[in-house]
């Protein structure tokens, strides 16, 4: 069985992946890299669900005559839904990225924050002249 590979460490490997994605998400400034980090983070959570649903020696949950033990179908259903939610978010995030690139000329979060601040300061000056 392939299962030896997972054994005890299974959950922890998944957690490692999750944190790798989470790190990419919060540590980097590039918007696309953030979205990719988000995807890795999410898919690691999906793996956690699916591992929970696994029954050793079970088979995929499609009823057949000669099979006694099935893995749990419920996590599979939940994760199907969650994957779809994930891709929907990704599509929206990428569309926003495109608009941000067009409006700001960059997709680096630091630069964008700086530009927003500058705009704010400019307005403040205008107000000060009153």
């Amino acid at each position: 069985m392939m299962l030896d590979f997972f054994d005890l460490y299974n959950y922890w490997v998944v957690i490692f992946l999750m944190m790798a994605g989470f790190y990419t998400l919060i540590a980097y400034d590039n918007l696309i890299k953030k979205i990719i980090g988000l995807n890795i983070f999410q898919s690691a959570v999906f793996m956690l669900y699916i591992s929970v649903g696994k029954v050793s020696g079970g088979s995929e949950p499609i009823a057949a005559d000669n099979i006694e033990l099935y893995s749990n179908p419920l996590p599979h259903v939940l994760i199907l839904t969650a994957i779809v939610v994930g891709v929907a978010t990704t599509a929206l995030g990428l569309a926003l990225t495109i608009r941000i690139k067009e409006a700001y000329g960059t997709i680096n979060e630091n630069d964008i924050v700086q530009m927003n601040r500058d705009a704010e300061a400019e307005k403040a000056q205008e107000w000060g002249r009153e």
């Binding site: 696309i32 979205i35 990719i36 995807n39 898919s43 999906f46 793996m47 699916i50 591992s51 649903g53 696994k54 029954v55 079970g58 088979s59 995929e60 949950p61 499609i62 099935y70 893995s71 996590p75 599979h76 994760i79 199907l80 994957i83 779809v84 994930g86 891709v87 990704t90 599509a91 990428l94």
Partner: peptide, 22 residues
């Protein structure tokens, strides 16, 4: 992990649609 439906979807979405959109 026996999740064939999920695998199917992940391959189509993650490796297919998401990558393409990116």
């Amino acid at each position: 992990l026996d999740a064939v439906d999920v695998a199917f979807t992940e391959a189509a979405v993650g490796a297919g649609i998401s990558t393409m959109l990116m």
